[in-house]
C-alpha cells in the first residue's frame, strides 16, 4: 500500500513518518523507530508481548494499523523507562518492583507485562490481586507462573501510592 504521512506522539515526542498505514504499529515501532522493547511473539494478538499504550489504553500493537495512530499518543516500554528516569530514578517504579520481586526471568514477556500493568495502575491505583491477574490476562508468560508478576504490580502500586500520598 502507498505510504502516507502519519503524525502522532511517541513517548512524549512528536513524530512524523511516511509509512504504509496498513502495516502494523508493531512494525512501525520496531523497524522505523528502533523501539525493539516492543516484542513480536505471534503477530496475531494472542501473546501480548507487543503491548503498548494507545491514548492510555493497552493494545496489541501487532493488531493496530499504523494509520490508526494518526493524532494519537503512543507509549512504549522505552517511554516508561524515560518517565522513571525523569523523576530522578533509573527506571519506573513498576520496573523496579519487577526486578525486586523476581518477576523477570527470560524477560521476553516483560515489556508487554509492564505496559499492561502500567495501564492498570493508571486507571486503578490500588488494584486487588484478581484485578491484576485480569489486567495481565492478555500477556502470556511461560517462565513465572505469573505469581511474581502479580506481586510486583501490587508492590509497585503501593510504592506509587505512597509517593502520591
Amino acid at each position: 500500500m502507498k505510504e502516507q504521512v502519519i503524525r502522532f506522539e511517541i513517548n512524549g515526542e512528536k513524530a512524523e513518518v511516511y509509512a504504509d498505514p496498513t502495516l502494523s504499529l508493531l512494525h512501525l515501532l520496531r523497524s522505523r523507530f528502533n523501539l525493539i522493547g516492543t516484542k513480536e511473539g505471534c503477530r496475531k494478538g494472542e501473546c501480548g508481548t507487543c503491548t503498548v499504550l494507545l491514548d492510555g489504553q493497552a493494545v496489541n500493537s501487532c493488531l493496530v494499523p499504523a494509520g490508526k495512530v494518526e493524532g494519537k499518543k503512543v507509549l512504549t516500554i522505552e517511554g516508561v523507562t524515560r518517565e522513571g528516569a525523569l523523576k530522578g530514578k533509573r527506571v519506573h517504579p513498576l520496573q523496579q518492583s519487577f526486578v525486586e520481586k523476581g518477576a523477570v526471568q527470560c524477560g521476553f514477556c516483560t515489556p508487554g507485562m509492564v505496559m499492561s500493568a502500567y495501564a492498570l495502575l493508571r486507571d486503578n491505583p490500588s488494584p486487588s490481586p484478581e484485578q491484576v491477574r485480569e489486567a495481565i490476562s492478555g500477556n502470556l508468560c511461560r517462565c513465572s507462573g505469573y505469581k511474581q508478576i502479580e506481586e510486583a504490580v501490587l508492590e509497585a502500586a503501593k510504592t506509587m501510592q505512597e509517593k502520591q500520598g
Partner: peptide
C-alpha cells in the same frame, strides 16, 4: 538479592 543475571535491567527496560 535477586534471582536474575546482570541483564535483568536490560530486560525490564526493553
Amino acid at each position: 538479592a535477586y534471582n536474575q543475571g546482570p541483564d535483568v535491567w536490560d530486560k525490564v527496560t526493553g
